[in-house]
């Protein structure tokens, strides 16, 4: 069975993987020159279904729970199983209680317990929440390694390309917000993020700071590099980071640790997340095309579950068609 996957972001690569390992002949086309042209490149890479539940519907937990295991099985050694630490500045302590009430799978930590997890937080926060079962990965490494693995599995890649003349049995469209015309419910939610570099602070896990307007997090990427994200603006504008957003993200990083005040800003970028009205992804079928879209903030968290669902749909559908043909010819 020949399948065309459009889009080499996390949704497209995960779908290509699930289809390829089940025996499909998969070709991936991507409009950028390499993997990482879209929103996935700017992702936080937190595999944190319990924390995400704070501002998302309950499905995020059951769709996201198996994600870390999928990534670990698919790309061994990539995932850091260190949990998530949630902290709040003293004036927002009440918000920490609200966060705790809205979520599950956490333990309330004292200042000493926080210090035991993150040495550099000694004396900084009086209480925090620890989500021990959560994990994180580096999205850029993940995309590159998944691309390499797929090539090894025999998946064909065509970069800098949005159409192909070859014929396929099915098309799996994972082009994110670029599919907005075909999916009228899809909207863009702008996100802005920074990469900082400092050797003065070391973190082992994503740290979320309770913030009144959007969830802010600092994710260690190793080698003194940290990703700080991400704003949420109801807009499909992908223009450069605004001064206000930069200020808010830097403020948040500085609140997490003052050493970030001396960090170098390596990168500041903005992207557009595709989202449906319930902010959860779904699969939509139209003729031979299957759309996997609407990942919102949850690309790396939810792409595996949706990729499996899509592969089930395609492979099972093919199997039942074959059975049908056999019956018809008998």
């Amino acid at each position: 069975m020949r399948i065309l996957v459009k889009g080499a972001g996390v949704a497209g690569l995960a779908a290509a993987h699930e289809l390829a390992v089940r025996g499909a002949d998969v070709t991936v086309i991507e409009k950028s020159a390499a993997v990482g042209g879209g929103a996935s490149w700017l992702a936080g890479g937190m595999l944190a279904p319990y924390c995400e539940r704070e501002s998302a519907e309950a499905d995020v937990i059951h769709l996201g729970r198996g994600s870390a295991r999928w990534w670990e099985e698919t790309l061994p050694g990539l995932v850091a199983f260190n949990g998530t630490l949630v902290v709040a500045p003293p004036r927002d302590a009440a918000e920490l209680r609200r966060f705790a009430a809205r979520t599950e799978g956490h333990a309330l930590l004292s200042a000493e317990e926080i210090e035991a997890l993150e040495r550099d937080f000694a004396g900084r926060f009086r209480s925090g929440l620890f989500f021990a079962s959560e994990a994180h990965l580096d999205p850029r490494k993940a995309l590159k390694r998944l691309h390499a693995k797929l090539e090894a599995l025999g998946v064909h890649f065509l970069f800098g390309c949005t159409e192909t003349l070859q014929t396929f049995d099915r098309i799996v469209d994972c082009t994110g917000f670029a599919a907005a015309e075909a999916l009228p419910e899809l909207r863009g939610v702008r996100g802005e993020m920074l990469y900082l570099e400092t050797r003065e602070v070391v973190l082992s896990r994503p740290v979320r700071l309770i913030h009144p307007r959007f969830p802010v997090y600092v994710v260690p990427r190793g080698g003194g590099r940290f990703m700080v994200g991400a704003t949420m603006v109801e807009s499909a504008d992908s223009g450069p980071v605004t001064a206000r957003s930069m200020m808010e993200l830097l403020n948040a990083a500085y609140t997490v640790h003052p050493a970030f005040g001396e960090a170098r800003i390596l990168e500041a970028a903005a992207g557009v997340r595709p989202a449906f009205p319930d902010n959860l992804p779904k699969i939509e079928t139209s003729g031979d095309t299957l759309f996997i879209n609407g990942f919102h903030r949850h690309g790396f968290l939810l792409a595996p579950a949706l990729a499996r669902q899509a592969a089930d749909l395609i492979i099972l559908n093919e199997a039942s068609n074959e059975a049908h043909r056999e019956r018809a010819s008998a």
Binding site: A180, P184, R187, G188, V233, E234, S235, D237
Partner: peptide, 16 residues
């Protein structure tokens, strides 16, 4: 102010 970078373009928060 915060939500209006692309004004009234279709498909987005506005139409909702």
């Amino acid at each position: 102010r915060r939500e209006g970078l692309d004004g009234g373009s279709g498909g987005g928060f506005w139409s909702l």
